[in-house]
Computed example of a mutant assay.
Amino acid sequence: MALATAFMLFPVAAFGADIGTVDAAVAPAAEFDSQRYGDFRDTLANWKVTIGAGGIYLPEYEGSDKFEVKPFPLISATIGDRLHLETTGITYDVFSWEGFTLSARGGYDLGRKEDDSDYLRGLGDIDAGGVVGGIISYEAGPFEVYAALNKTIGGSDGLQGTFGARASHRYERFIFTADVSGTWADDKYMESYFGVTSAQSASSGLAQYDAKAGVKRVDFKASVTYMMTKNWLVTGAAGAGFLMGDAKDSPIVKDDVQPFAMLGVSYKF
């Protein structure tokens, strides 16, 4: 669960460059009908890829007051103008006009393991599941507002909605970003991650608790990327989430303030 939260918190940005065109001599016209099938070499030239790794310091699970350091992959790719691949999944821009973008998304939820923390003993595991959803955003210069709705299939079977705003600014070799967002979750999600059933209460010793739908957290985060060279990047990020409503009041939650910090190195192609 800690790593799943990390994926949600850290803004993985793609600063990819063209891979470069493939030598035309590789595929003579007599062997490859580009007019009929399209030339994949032109597609490769539009790929922008960033790959790297780092470490992240964050709570053991959402609501814990104990922290751990975990390795964190930095993977991002943009194919053409519409398809975006990141560690969390795939996004496809269905429609764009005058700064507005409507996107479809597919990804995954890692769930939560009982052995992620001593505090979770007796609560059982929350299985992993697939995620499908959509995002609508509006961008004006360095500013962007966005809203996302994601449904988990399997696992919690929950629904989450996020509304937020971000800003970015480049100064010489530095890129600064800041983001604020709020997340709402339905009954299924809240009951899975913050509720305690009678059976779980008997196994864990925690009081029985019924978590209802509502705004579960507000997040503030910022990152700084330093471009050491044309290809090598160093990124640091930090922020905090503030649990709210039934999430904050859950007996599973030991601290409603959830800070994190991350440092990573990546290479853009």
Score class of each variant (00 low, 15 high):
Asp42Ala: 12
Ala199Asp: 15
Met228Asn: 08
Gly264Gln: 13
Val234Gly: 05
Gly129Trp: 08
Gly122Phe: 08
Asp187His: 10
Gly129Cys: 09
Val12Leu: 15
Val253Asp: 00
Ala147His: 01
Tyr61Ile: 02
Ala53Tyr: 09
Phe176Trp: 06
Phe100Ser: 04
Ala148Asn: 11
Pro11His: 03
Asp186Pro: 01
Gly20Met: 00
Phe15Cys: 04
Phe10Trp: 12
Pro73Glu: 10
Tyr267Ser: 10
Arg166Ile: 05
Thr235Ala: 06
Ser96Lys: 15
Thr162Phe: 02
Ala147Glu: 01
Phe220Ser: 06
Ala240Met: 14
Phe95Lys: 07
Phe15Pro: 03
Gly141Ala: 00
Val257Phe: 08
Glu62Gln: 10
Glu139Ile: 13
Ala207Asp: 12
Ile135Tyr: 07
Asp255His: 09
Gly16Ala: 14
Leu263Thr: 09
Val94Trp: 14
Val265Glu: 11
Gly20Lys: 00
Glu144Val: 06
Tyr108Thr: 15
Pro259Leu: 03
Val132Arg: 08
Tyr92Thr: 13
Ala30Cys: 09
Gly195Asp: 10
Asp186Glu: 03
Asp116His: 00
Ser156Asn: 11
Ser250Thr: 10
Ser64Met: 04
Pro73Tyr: 12
Asn231Lys: 09
Arg217Asn: 14
Met262Val: 07
Ala185Trp: 00
Ser137Val: 04
Leu206Cys: 06
Asp210Phe: 12
Tyr61Met: 01
Asp42Trp: 03
Phe7Asp: 12
Leu83Pro: 01
Gly154Met: 04
Ile51Val: 15
Arg121Asn: 08
Tyr37Glu: 11
Ala45Asp: 15
Ile51Glu: 10
Asp186Ile: 03
Phe100Ile: 12
Ile126Cys: 03
Thr101Asp: 13
Thr235Pro: 07
Phe67Ser: 04
Val253Thr: 08
Gly264Cys: 11
Thr21Val: 09
Pro251Gln: 06
Tyr119Pro: 10
Phe72Glu: 07
Thr235Phe: 04
Phe72Val: 12
Gly241Ser: 12
Leu159Phe: 13
Asp187Ser: 08
Val69Asn: 06
Arg82Glu: 14
Val26Ala: 11
